[in-house]
Simulated scan of single mutants.
Amino acid sequence: MTDDQRIRIAAETAAERSKAVERLLELVRIESPSRHRDASARIADALALEYRALGGAVVRTDDEEGSHLVVDWAGEGAPLLLIGHSDTVWPIGTIDGAVPLVETADAIAGPGVFDMKSGLVVIETAMRIANRLGRRRAVRLVVTADEEIGSPRSRVLVESAASGAVGAIGFESPHTDGSLKIGRRGSTRLRVDVVGREAHAALDPGAGVSAADELIDQLLVIRDDIARISAQGREVLCNVGSIVAPGKANVVNAAASAELGLRFIDHATEREVLASLGELSPIRPGAAIACAVLSNRPAWLASAADAAFGQRLSEAAGVDLGGRPAAGAGDVNFVAALGIPAVDGFGPRGRGAHAVDEQIVTSALSERIEQLVGILLAVA
């Protein structure tokens, strides 16, 4: 790309800055928590309207988790796949309470700003500029509505959208220094269910089997097994997301469950841990235990092809984008597992994903837009 082209891209980006900020504020005000179908439909409507205005062919899929979008823009060569999501971890009403929408001199804070509505704005704005500047490459965009809960419904959609793509860019938040994420842990969410037997806790406690006690002991077994594997240099992260054991203090509890979030560095470790969980046996006679996988993202070990793809993107963007592995998983894991060169973390710099201080650096929004325009115009 010539210096004149870069100057024009910078000028176009500067002209779009205020519009991009207003669009981000608009999208954040459309609160869109996972598993809220009406909210998901509202933000999908707003996104699809803009994608069509930009010349995109939009296919919408509505299911029990929300409204997913796949958009195709015609252009040169095989499509470049862009990956984002519209759902957030924040419930409706958060914007009026714990995480208000606040704009300061060079920061915008609010629910979903960093993860990842700012990334969606980068895509829209870059497409608008690239369309004005002429010849660009073909683009396919997938926006899922259930990423924050592991993409249980949209995985097939993402994998299908990846067919024929030359490479994939995810628009999750970057590393704190702005570097891309190349390689991410695998992530599995599962539920451990325990069935016991009710009995009076004082008159006949021996007739009962406490599902709550059994679950607690099983969680200790799981923790010890994970610690054993991690001690071998294959770190496994395990978070107990919830424990449910409804009942009364004077009745031996008959049912309990826990939802776990597990993260793995490679496929072999994942298989070993999940196999171990599948072989859990009751400690108490009369108890029953079962594990159900709720969602799964395969581990993404960065390849030479991923690194080379990242380098080509840096050259097209005119800046060293950087790149290193990250702990969190995302929808790009699905695409990378298919062998398609990929990077993630193309959202603007900021902080506070899933936290009350969630925010982006406003100037970073323009930086990412400018970089993406350069990539879209690099059709060779």
Rank of each mutant, 00 (worst) to 15 (best):
L294P: 01
A256M: 07
G286Q: 04
A258Q: 10
S295D: 14
P325V: 14
I265H: 09
R324W: 11
N333A: 06
E259W: 08
A275L: 10
A288E: 02
G261K: 02
A308C: 05
L262H: 03
A304N: 09
C291E: 03
A337D: 01
V273L: 07
A255N: 13
P282C: 08
S281E: 15
I265G: 06
S281I: 09
N250E: 09
L301P: 00
D320T: 11
A305Q: 02
D320V: 14
R271S: 12
A255S: 14
L274A: 10
A317W: 01
N333P: 01
V335F: 00
V273E: 03
A317M: 06
F309T: 07
A329R: 04
N250C: 05
S257G: 04
H267I: 15
G310A: 10
G310K: 10
A316C: 09
A256W: 04
S257M: 07
G323P: 03
G318P: 11
P298S: 13
A307I: 05
E272S: 10
R284C: 01
Q311G: 15
L262I: 05
L277I: 13
F309G: 00
V251R: 02
A299K: 05
N296I: 06
S314D: 04
G278Q: 01
A258E: 05
N250R: 07
A337Y: 08
V251F: 03
E259R: 15
R271W: 07
V319Q: 06
V273P: 07
D266Y: 11
I289P: 01
A327R: 15
A327E: 11
A268L: 12
G318L: 10
W300F: 10
G318A: 02
E270R: 15
G330V: 10
E315V: 15
N253M: 07
G328V: 12
G318T: 13
S281Y: 11
A275G: 11
G328P: 10
L294G: 05
A307M: 07
F334T: 05
A317K: 09
N296V: 04
I265E: 00
V332Y: 03
A288D: 04
F334D: 08
R284P: 00
P285W: 06
A258D: 05
F309D: 06
A305G: 04
A290I: 05
P285F: 02
V319T: 15
A299P: 13
E279F: 13
P298K: 08
G278S: 04
A256Y: 00
S295M: 04
L280N: 03
V332D: 02
V273Y: 04
E272A: 14
S303R: 01
A292T: 15
L262A: 10
G310W: 00
A258W: 04
G322Q: 11
A287G: 08
S314K: 09
C291Y: 00
F334K: 02
S276F: 14
E259I: 14
V319N: 03
A254S: 14
P285S: 09
A329W: 08
N296T: 08
V252N: 00
G330I: 07
F309W: 12
S257F: 13
N296L: 12
E270P: 03
P282V: 08
F334E: 06
